[in-house]
Design a protein around this nucleic acid. Structure first.
Lengths: 174, 174
DNA sequence: ACAATCTTTCAGAACATACTGAAACTTCGG
DNA sequence: CCGAAGTTTCAGTATGTTCTGAAAGATTGT
């Protein structure tokens, strides 16, 4: 009856994954609960209902509903209607690389670009001042790099390949 | 007397830069005030005193002190003692690329690595479950890529050059 | 050693974010 | 068209973060 007394290795492992993934999600600007819901769906071989998720994570249905909405908005969770069942079911984990790239691209578009644009605009009016010029050049280059990175999906996919194969490590050890 | 009535183009531009840079900083996990202080130092051709910063940004000296402490901790601001002056002065903007890389590396080390490690550990205990395996592979690759990226400073510097020159854009336009 | 000047710290206030639970809404079978 | 089952929304509450201002701590000139 009391969960903390009995030992459930699998459930424990899932709890720890859920917590760690929530942590990771919060680094990338999601709230921890949203990350936790995502984790649960990612390690689940079957689709889960809202109620099952809320129960497993010990959060209210309302909260679970909001988290799922957010995750669907980011395109990382899909809702499924099972015929003959009133509950909706949710799945995650489809095409993880594509999803990561999409999230990064979208965050850049929504958050980075406007602020960088404002900053560059303000810096233009400070032209002539050495410090301002340095900063403008730096930020301009950064912006350009970020844009290159997301200009097309292939760029990122190739880049991932490049990095995996050990780009930049001149002296290969052992 | 009333600042908002008189027009100060330069001061306005700095205000807008400060605000935008605060926004950018918050994307990367700093608080807005810390970002604002950093902006002020970045566009300033001379070193500024704590009092000057607090006054210019309309924040308490206490807060300014904390922000400067944080910025020094991240190695993006340096404190200078002017001989014959009791106040300390602060400068920023020295070697921006190096600083960016250092910040990214440190954030990875402090925030990403521990969470990713926990997640992978938990996933190991779920071996055999298809969804868990997929996630483990994905996260493992991601971790490996991130490590490659920061394995040595040259990797990132070369990468920046590569991206600036338009890596990944097969059809070069115009 | 004292006083003046500046900086740091930190308790509590102000502000911001996230969560709950209940009401409103939707869907579907009968 | 009604009632049952499920989902969404949102006002209020709880939790977490950031800021202020005052007290304590440094440092320096006399």
């Amino acid at each position: 009856m009391d969960k903390s007394k009995k030992i459930h290795p699998r459930e424990d492992a899932i709890d720890r994954l859920v917590e760690a993934w929530g942590q990771l999600a919060s680094i990338f600007g999601f709230n921890r609960s949203t990350g936790r819901v995502s984790a649960l769906l990612l390690v689940s071989d079957e689709a889960l209902s809202l109620s099952a998720i809320a129960e497993r994570l010990q959060i209210s249905r309302g909260n679970a509903s909001m988290c799922l909405k957010e995750l669907r908005r980011w395109g990382v969770v899909r809702r499924i209607a099972e015929p003959g069942d009133r509950q909706d079911y949710y799945v995650g984990g489809e095409d993880l690389w594509r999803q990561m790239i999409e999230i990064a691209r979208e965050r850049k578009r929504r958050e980075f670009d406007p602020a960088a644009h404002d900053a560059l605009e303000a810096l233009e009016e400070l032209e002539g001042e050495p410090a301002a010029n340095r900063l403008a050049t730096h930020l301009g280059t950064l912006d350009q790099i970020a844009s290159q990175l997301f200009a097309n999906d292939d760029a990122l996919v190739s880049l991932i390949g490049l990095l995996q194969s050990g780009f930049g490590n001149k002296g290969v050890q052992s």
